[in-house]
Design a protein around this nucleic acid. Structure first.
Lengths: 162, 162
DNA sequence: TATTGAAATGTTATAATATAACATTTTTGA
DNA sequence: TCAAAAATGTTATATTATAACATTTCAATA
């Protein structure tokens, strides 16, 4: 557990296929090691989440899923997203009601921090131990026991800042 | 701007009327000083938000408002909440889709941190400059320009921890 | 390998949260 | 007093998410 940029902002012309491949491969590995089933449906939802580095709406996933899998309905998507979140493969961005693939599901990180670029819409993920420690320390002073922390920072990314 | 507990966790038997009075009085003062109109409707919504230290759902406000103001509809509540949020009198807790009164609307604080007690449901508000500075510093290192930050920490408060 | 219980998916309905669009009323300032 | 702006009323609908129950698929084991 150290300071990590779990998923940075990527340039418009990065090889996104590589991001997708890494995500899918590590998802398969993780599920296997956990004895969890990454079914075709769940895998497909994960792929749809990984279309871009922008968080995706559940109903956008549903619309796409319907085209290829006509029996899809809201529970189809929400169940898959629930599963993927439980495995740490997907995170929900609460302030956007949208879902993003986790860049580092292997390394356990209970407390990610998300950076949301207002301009390009992309989201980066950090797992910064200094932030987590400071939050823990600060709330402990108040007698509060921290279980999970949600940090979502809105601003402008380095690329958009040029 | 300093380290502040804007609104602490309060014991079950604290004099909540005082919290309400302070909130209402400072809201009136703030609106007056800003040339904003705290209309009866807006004030009533603010009072309903301040019923407790637990965040309140928009439709719960609506249900109560309807009893006393039959023309109330969703926009009635959402417009009042939007106004109150713009004035810094109310905050939205994103992870709960619920609204809480701001304990210190006077002192400008762009970046609150919210502590959410799983057990009693209450929410405390901090404006901790160390946290804000660290977040700023960390994202700056990545070339990210921070505009607003959402920090919501779930756990157990000192009172529930006994 | 047949069975059976659990897990996953299908299906229908509806709950919960939020906004759009336009009409009317109220307030404010010229 | 009038006109413009602000606030509220009203109706409709969009968006996000879950409940409840039926059916199918999978995987362990008898």
């Amino acid at each position: 557990m150290k300071n990590k940029v779990i998923m940075p902002f990527r340039s418009a012309k990065h090889q996104h296929r590589k991001c997708q491949k890494i995500a899918l491969d590590s998802a398969k590995k993780l599920c296997e090691s956990q004895g969890q089933r990454l079914t075709p449906l769940r895998q497909r939802v994960l792929e749809l989440v990984w279309q871009t580095h922008e968080p995706v709406k559940a109903y956008d996933i549903l619309d796409q899923l319907k085209d290829e899998h006509s029996s899809s309905a809201p529970p189809t998507v929400y169940r898959a997203l629930d599963f993927l979140q439980e495995q740490g493969l997907v995170h929900k961005i609460e302030s956007l009601n949208a879902y993003i693939g986790c860049g580092g599901p292997d390394e356990s990180h209970e407390h990610s921090q998300f950076l949301i670029c207002q301009q390009c819409g992309a989201v980066a993920e950090l797992d910064d131990i200094d932030i987590t420690n400071l939050l823990n320390e600060k709330v402990s002073e108040l007698g509060f026991t921290m279980q999970t922390g949600m940090v979502e920072i809105v601003g402008v990314c380095a690329i958009c800042n040029h």
